[in-house]
C-alpha cells in the first residue's frame, strides 16, 4: 500500500468529523454509524482505503453472480449422467440444482467441443439466462456486441483474448424471451482430479456466454 497521507481529502467516502454529506443517525447504535466509524479508523491507520472497499464490493457483487451456472457446468464435467440430462433438457437439469427462472424461460445448454465453439448473443435486446448467470455484463447489451457477434464472431472472440482454431465451427445462438442459452465450456486440461467446488471456480460468466474459455481469467 503506497497511500499514506493522501486519503483524507478525496473520494466519495470521506468520513471526517466535518463531513456533512451523511444523514444524521437517530440512534447511536445505528449499524451504519458503527460501520462508518470502523472504516474511518482503518483508513486513518492506513489499513484500508475507501477506494479498495468500493472496488471489492463491486467485484464480489458482479463476479459471484454467475456462480449458479458455474455449479451447473462443474457438475456436468464430473457427472456424465448429469451432462447428458443437461444437454437433453437444460431447464429440468438446472432445476435439479434448485435454480430456475421466475418467468419460466426454457434453458438450452450448448456444448463446446474440439469441433464446435458456441457463442450466445441476443440480437433483439438483451435476453440473458439471469437465474444461472446473474446480471448481464454491460457489453452484452451493447449494440456493438449484438451486431458484431453475428457478423464477425472470430474477431469479437479475439478481442476477448479467445483464439478459436480456423477449423473449429463457431455457432451463434440468439437468445430470446422464450429460449435462453448456456454454453457448456470444455473442461480445462489438467483439471480431472478436481472436485466440483474447485471446478466451479474455473467457470467464469464469460465462458458460459462463450466469449472466453473456462479457466481463463476475465
Amino acid at each position: 500500500m503506497s497511500s499514506d497521507h493522501d486519503h483524507h481529502d478525496h473520494g466519495p467516502h470521506d468520513h471526517g468529523p466535518h463531513d456533512h454529506g451523511h444523514s444524521h443517525a437517530v440512534d447511536k447504535n445505528d449499524p451504519s454509524l458503527r460501520v462508518e466509524a470502523i472504516e474511518s479508523l482503518l483508513v486513518e491507520a492506513g489499513l484500508v482505503t475507501s477506494e479498495k472497499i468500493d472496488a471489492l464490493v463491486d467485484r464480489y457483487q458482479h463476479d459471484i453472480g454467475p456462480m449458479n451456472g458455474a455449479r451447473v457446468v462443474a457438475k456436468a464435467w464430473t457427472d456424465p449422467d448429469y451432462r447428458a440430462r443437461l444437454l437433453d433438457d437444460a431447464t429440468a437439469a438446472i432445476a435439479e440444482l434448485g435454480y430456475g427462472g421466475a418467468q419460466g424461460e426454457k434453458m438450452v445448454a450448448v456444448e463446446n467441443t474440439d469441433d464446435v465453439h458456441n457463442l450466445v448473443v441476443c440480437t433483439l435486446c438483451s435476453c440473458y439466462p439471469w437465474p444461472v448467470l446473474g446480471l448481464p455484463p454491460s457489453w452484452y447489451k451493447s449494440h456493438e456486441y449484438r451486431a458484431r457477434a453475428v457478423r464477425e464472431p472470430r474477431a469479437v472472440l479475439k478481442e476477448f483474448g479467445t483464439d478459436v482454431a480456423d477449423e473449429t465451427e463457431i455457432k451463434i445462438w440468439d437468445s430470446s424471451a422464450e429460449i435462453r442459452y448456456l454454453v457448456l465450456p470444455q473442461q480445462p486440461p489438467g483439471t480431472d482430479g478436481l472436485g466440483e467446488e474447485e471446478l466451479a471456480r474455473l467457470v467464469g460468466r464469460d465462458a458460459m456466454i462463450g466469449v472466453r474459455l473456462a479457466g481463463v481469467e476475465s
Partner: peptide, 23 residues
Amino acid sequence: NGELIFDAPWQSRAFGIAAALVE
C-alpha cells in the same frame, strides 16, 4: 440468482471492509 443481497449501504460497506482486510 447468485448475486449478493444488501438491504442497506452499510451492509455492502461492512462486507467490503472485511473483504479488503482479508485480501
